[in-house]
Each structure stands twice: as C-alpha cells, then as structure tokens.
Simulated assay, not measured.
Amino acid sequence: MTDMFVLPDVDEHLGMTDLARAALAHGLADAATDRTGHGPHAVRMVVHNARAVAVAEGHTDPDFIERIVITAALQDVADVKRTGDAKSGAEAARAFLIGQGAPAAFADAVAADIASIKFQGAHTPRRPLSAAGRIVQDAVWLASLGAIGICRAMAYGGAIGREMYDPDLPAFYADTAEAYLAQTTTSINHLLEKAARIPDMLNTATARRIAKSRHEFLMRFLAQFTAEWEGRA
C-alpha cells in the first residue's frame, strides 16, 4: 500500500475574508438538509482540502486563497445533480457574489470555474479552469476517492433510488456530458465510471500523491466486492 500523504496544516484565517466567510456560510446553509453525502461536512472538507492543497503547492497569497475558499464553498450550490440544469450552479454562484457586492469580473471568473469543475464523464473534453479552479477541482475529485468516496457514492445512489449493483449492467464510459448524466447506472458502476479514473485527471502533484493510497483502497474494495458477489470470498 502506498504511504499516506498528509496535507499541511493551514492557518484557519488564511483567505477567510468577509466575502469568503459569507460564501462558506451560504454553502453550508444550502447543504444543510442534504442526505446524499454532499452535506455541510462535505462542504467543509472540500474547502479545507482545497486550501491545504494550495499551500502544499506553494500558494500563500491571501487573495488567491480567498478565491479558492469562495469557489470551493459555492461549487455545490444549486448543482446539476439537484436541478437538472448544467448552468444552475454557476448562475447561482454569480448571483450570490454580485448580491454580496463582489466585482462583476470576480463573480464571472468564479462562476466560470464552477461551470467547469465537475466530472461530466471520463471521455468528455476537459474545460479550461483558472489556477484556483484547478485546485478546487482536485479537492472536489479527491472527495470521490477512498473510503469517503465509496460511502458518498452509496449514500447518493440510495438517495436517488439507484441500484447498488447489477451484473448485467456493464460500466458505461460516456463521451458527452449529456450521455453521462442520462445513463442508467449502479453505485458500483459509478465507482468504476468516475472514481477509478480520477487519479489520471488530477491537476496538481499534491492531489496525485493523495490519490495514490485512496485509489489503491478503492480498487481493493471493488476486487473484494466482486469476489464476494461471485462467491469467491
């Protein structure tokens, strides 16, 4: 097993401006009733890990960290998995920031990152992101790996009525975002279709180091699951 990589400690005040605190409060409030693994604890985890990845990558500029906190805090608000609208998250983030008095250029930049962060199928084209957006994307994707990623996949699948596993339904690797969102899948297939492919898609060396042990754990889980399902374990 790969040695665990420990993220650095982060000054709790780094990047936490009034606007960043407002964004975090908004993200937490939006997630308050979620029972799919995307609740307030998940929001805090993504914000914390995004800041820590940034610091590990050598970023300490408070303005840059503020941008990361805000993007991470808002990236799941009005998300497509709840609204069915791929544009809703970015639009909600922009409206919130404008309502808080943020400059339009800043709100537009954050919204553009949020529109491009999410996983929309392993074979779909990657969308351009800012440096801050790439770090937040890594934090979001790391939350889909390892023990937490497995639990979140099962929680989300159960919440939307997705079957845990169907041996007659193979994994499907979508070529378009529309096909990815429309496919009928299972929670186990989702781990294959999404989580298992994330390490090859990460942006930073720090995230790739963290992903190693999480990916190994995921693949051991999937091997054990298959063995038990087939009566070999």
Score class of each variant (00 low, 15 high):
T33L: 12
T33E: 15
D34V: 03
R35G: 00
R35T: 04
R35C: 02
H48A: 14
H48D: 14
V53T: 10
G58Y: 15
H59D: 06
H59T: 04
D61P: 02
P62F: 12
P62N: 13
D63K: 15
F64G: 06
V69G: 07
A73Q: 02
Q75T: 10
Q75N: 14
D79G: 12
V80Q: 11
V80P: 00
K81A: 11
R82N: 11
R82V: 06
T83R: 11
G84A: 09
D85I: 10
G89Y: 08
G89R: 09
A90N: 00
E91D: 09
A93N: 02
A93T: 00
R94T: 02
A95P: 13
I98G: 02
I98T: 13
G99Y: 11
G101Y: 15
P103C: 09
A104M: 07
A109E: 04
V110I: 14
A111D: 03
D113Q: 03
I114V: 07
A115C: 03
S116F: 03
I117K: 05
K118E: 10
Q120E: 15
G121V: 09
G121T: 13
A122R: 09
H123K: 09
H123M: 05
T124I: 06
T124N: 08
T124P: 03
P125K: 15
R127L: 14
A132W: 00
A132Y: 00
D138P: 06
D138Y: 06
A139Y: 08
V140H: 00
L142S: 14
A143D: 12
S144Y: 14
C151L: 13
Y156A: 07
Y156Q: 13
G158P: 04
G158K: 15
A159E: 05
I160F: 03
I160M: 04
G161I: 10
G161Q: 12
R162F: 00
R162D: 02
E163Y: 01
E163A: 08
E163P: 01
E163R: 12
M164W: 12
A171I: 08
F172I: 13
Y173S: 14
D175F: 09
